[in-house]
């Protein structure tokens, strides 16, 4: 199952490159949303690969809570742009 994780890292490198290159803040936010969901799915894959229940719980918590912080950040940035 190693090739799965390597392909996932390749898919993860695309939004990282996008963040490095693009200057628009909303494009960066999009890439951040993509990276956040990709990393938590990768944590889930690693947990199944190693048959480790504890890492799996952490992955699910990050998946469900990390997005809330992302929405908060989106609203803060919107307020900054309008002021």
């Amino acid at each position: 199952m190693n090739w799965i994780l390597i392909a996932m890292v390749l898919a993860l490198l695309i939004p990282i490159y996008e963040v490095w290159k693009d200057e628009n803040i909303w494009q960066k936010m999009l890439a951040f949303a993509s990276i956040a969901s990709k990393t938590s799915v990768m944590i889930l894959v690693v947990s199944v690969l190693r048959d480790d229940w504890m890492i799996g719980v952490v992955g699910v918590i990050i998946l469900s809570v990390g997005n809330a912080g992302l929405m908060l950040l989106a609203h803060v940035i919107k307020r900054m742009n309008t002021l």
Partner: peptide, 9 residues
């Protein structure tokens, strides 16, 4: 949320 925030900005 992202669509609302980016288009509103």
């Amino acid at each position: 949320v992202l669509a609302y925030c980016s288009s509103g900005g």
